[in-house]
Nucleic acid binder design. Structure first.
Length: 323
DNA sequence: CGACTTTGACCCGCGC
DNA sequence: GCGCGGGTCAAAGTCG
């Protein structure tokens, strides 16, 4: 299972395709065993050298001790389970709402994409990923200070503003940005204030970054998708505290931070402020989210994955204390 | 001096 | 064909 195309989805508290500014925790599990600067969506980490040793460039000494082909295979299977879980939620969702409404209200197409991407070979999946990259669009709502007139969405990437326009349907100007972190990165971003809520910035991302995140994202508060569902806000970490070989790249268990437990999900949803007028659609959305959380809690595969991650973290902490 | 922002001009698709 | 609106370009300005 290749997860290079996955990203944290607006609308789901865990990683799925659709949000280009966040590298997924699933992706991290794979890439943390390879060199993040030479990320290969075809699965660099699994390739073996002539002497049979797995490639370990870019790893800390501690990681080199724990990385093995068996470990890689185990995590690959885990990723597959997680993806299947997402697909099941897509099925659940389609049972709960009419098809037309599904497309209009919930943006579950991202989940469907993952299911469709269940390719038989890495090469096939790579080609499909490249195909979807060209058309990938996601939208993120970010709460900002209403007095702050800048159209700056801190998502960890570097953007160069190349235009600004006042559109017909919104008195607030729309700013156009291109990703300037990597040469020829195709990702573009449009930022405009919400017509109904000036304290809400609407950031529309087009395309997918052809490089890894320049900084370790840090979840600090909640943002919302266009449909009012929770989504982590990412801000650029303090540059002085950021190291190239940060835990984001080098520590596999760091993925756990971006893979919240059902209780964390519940807590985050409970703390979520309401920004949009209550409506029937909102009620259905809340019901859907509650169903998801409930199913996540009961899902043995989820529990297994969670236990695995917790065990890994505890094991690593013990190792650190021992050292 | 390089990176970034500003802003008017330009391009292009679409509807009439 | 024409006008409109969204998106992009590029020169000039700004900033650290």
């Amino acid at each position: 299972m290749n997860t290079a195309s996955l990203g944290r989805s607006p609308g789901l508290p865990f990683a799925i395709e659709g949000n280009p500014f966040l590298d997924t925790s699933l992706d991290l599990k794979i890439n943390s065993f390879g060199n993040p600067e030479n990320h290969n969506p075809m699965g660099d980490a699994a390739r073996e050298d002539d002497d049979g040793d797995i490639r370990r460039q870019g790893l800390s000494p501690k990681q080199k001790d724990i990385v093995s082909v068996e470990e890689f295979n185990r995590i690959t299977a885990e990723n597959k389970k997680l993806t299947e879980m997402l697909c099941r939620y897509g099925d659940l969702q389609s049972q709960m709402v009419p098809r037309k409404r599904k497309l209009e209200e919930y943006e579950w197409d991202n989940v469907i994409k993952i299911c469709e991407n269940s390719a038989n070979s890495d090469e096939e999946l790579y080609l499909r990923t490249q195909e979807s990259t060209r058309t990938k669009v996601s939208r993120v709502y970010v709460q900002v200070d209403p007095s702050d007139m800048s159209l700056n969405v801190k998502d960890g990437y570097h953007w160069r503003k190349y235009g600004q326009k006042v559109t017909r349907d919104n008195p607030s100007p729309r700013a156009y940005f291109k990703c300037s972190f990597a040469p020829r990165c195709p990702v573009k971003k449009k930022v405009q204030r919400s017509v109904n809520n000036p304290s809400l910035l609407v950031a529309t991302y087009e395309g997918e970054h052809n490089h890894r995140s320049p900084a370790e994202p840090k979840i600090t508060s909640q943002s919302f998708t266009s449909k009012g569902q929770p989504n982590p806000v990412l801000v650029t970490p303090n540059p002085s505290s950021h190291k190239t070989n940060s835990s984001w790249y080098s520590n596999p268990s760091a993925a756990l931070d971006l893979f919240p437990s059902p209780r964390q999900i519940t807590n985050r949803l409970a703390k979520q402020p309401v920004h949009e007028t209550k409506s029937e659609a909102d009620s259905i959305k809340q019901l859907l989210v509650q169903q998801m959380v409930s199913s996540l809690t009961k899902d043995p595969n989820f529990a297994e994955a969670l236990v695995t991650k917790i065990s890994e973290r505890i094991f690593e902490q013990e190792i650190q204390e021992f050292v």
